[in-house]
Computed example of a mutant assay.
Amino acid sequence: MNDPASTPVPTADAHQGLHSDQGALRGEHPGRAPRPVIKVADLAWLEFTKPDLDRAETFAHDFGLTTAARTHDALYLRGAMTGTHCLVIRRGPGSRFIGPAFQAADAADLDRLARATGHKVRTLTEYGGGRAVDLLDPSGIPVRVVHGVAEEPARPLQRPLVLNTGTTATAARINAAQRPPRQPSQVQRLGHVVLSSRVFRRALDWYLQHLGLIVSDFLYLDGQRDRGPTMAFIRCDRGSEPADHHTLAMHLGPDTGYVHSAYQVADLDALAAGGEYLRERGYHHSWGIGRHIQGSQIFDYWRDPDRFMLEHYADGDVFDHTLEPGWAPMSASGLAQWGPPATRDFLGTTPSPRTLLQALSALREDNEIDRARLLGLMKALGK
């Protein structure tokens, strides 16, 4: 059981060659709550509605997911590793993101979270069962915390290719050619979700306080660091057990909701061959292949038939609870160590009446978007 009153852990200096050139300045956001209500263990699944479950299932299989269960009104998709299903797609009149579900570390955490928020623990009666507490984050996104959901057994995993590196004297593959098949990248598991919020700071603090998440990296706008970060890459706090560099990422923006979700595959060849498989079937490629800076993942981004963005990734960073946040300026060119420039499709900067209306609406509302912030975001995405 997590102890919210436990003493703070010693942290490693984030800017001494570990993962960021910069650490926090005095008085900046610490990247964690001192006494969180609970500490979630992982991201369990994401939930969507779509009008065509057949089309959604076809794309999911082409992307590398498999069907765990299907009813007339819902589709449950899974990766190959042991764990709960990782996507729930419900039949609905339109395509929309509902929200994420996080995995509580133990049953008592649900009771503690319910007491702290004034909500109830309820029994889940659909596929997988379990119990849940349903919340709303400050952006208005439904967030579910679950425990006791039935786990899917592991399936045989796609094996990383054996690579020859260096001299022939140390070759690992001899008298054997390398021929990775052009087939769907086998998704091993759901890695993370990225959300946009007009109330970024409030939403960030809510996730740190209620779910015990901790920040791996902050990004800030050029010339506006004194106003605080505008993006955070956030991981689960599993103590000394390493966790993904980010399970949740959030950024300030005029839109609210889903940006993309990411799914782990075996290696670069699985990612690239799977991408060619998707390309041959006419799916829209958004950006890649490249390697990120924050998180280090090798990435490749695709759009499903409903225009939702999904990422294949491999070789991501994992951090334990001792590493403190890194700080870096936000820019489009700073998203990757190598690879093609980030596309307008990926950045969401393609001009359209919808994006203009979102920006105007955000400026009129009581939120964290003002003219300086909006201009700073536009400048960052153009750099």
Rank of each mutant, 00 (worst) to 15 (best):
300 D>Y: 08
325 P>E: 10
328 A>W: 02
316 G>W: 03
319 F>P: 01
331 S>Y: 09
310 L>K: 08
318 V>A: 01
297 Q>V: 09
323 L>E: 10
299 F>P: 05
317 D>V: 00
307 R>N: 05
333 S>R: 11
304 D>V: 12
312 H>Y: 14
297 Q>G: 06
304 D>M: 11
322 T>K: 00
332 A>W: 09
302 W>L: 11
323 L>D: 06
334 G>K: 11
334 G>S: 13
305 P>G: 08
315 D>A: 11
326 G>N: 05
304 D>H: 06
295 G>V: 01
309 M>S: 07
319 F>I: 00
305 P>W: 10
294 Q>T: 10
290 G>R: 04
297 Q>M: 04
324 E>L: 04
301 Y>A: 10
319 F>Y: 15
294 Q>D: 14
303 R>Y: 10
302 W>Y: 06
304 D>A: 07
302 W>Q: 07
292 H>G: 04
332 A>D: 11
310 L>F: 09
329 P>G: 12
295 G>I: 01
318 V>P: 03
310 L>W: 15
306 D>R: 07
319 F>S: 00
321 H>C: 03
295 G>S: 10
333 S>D: 14
312 H>G: 05
301 Y>M: 08
292 H>T: 05
291 R>L: 11
320 D>A: 00
305 P>F: 08
317 D>P: 02
327 W>P: 07
319 F>M: 02
314 A>Y: 04
322 T>D: 02
294 Q>M: 07
335 L>K: 09
292 H>D: 05
324 E>A: 15
324 E>F: 00
318 V>L: 12
296 S>A: 15
307 R>K: 03
312 H>W: 08
333 S>V: 15
292 H>W: 08
315 D>N: 12
326 G>S: 06
310 L>D: 05
331 S>R: 13
331 S>V: 11
307 R>Q: 04
302 W>E: 13
323 L>Q: 14
303 R>P: 07
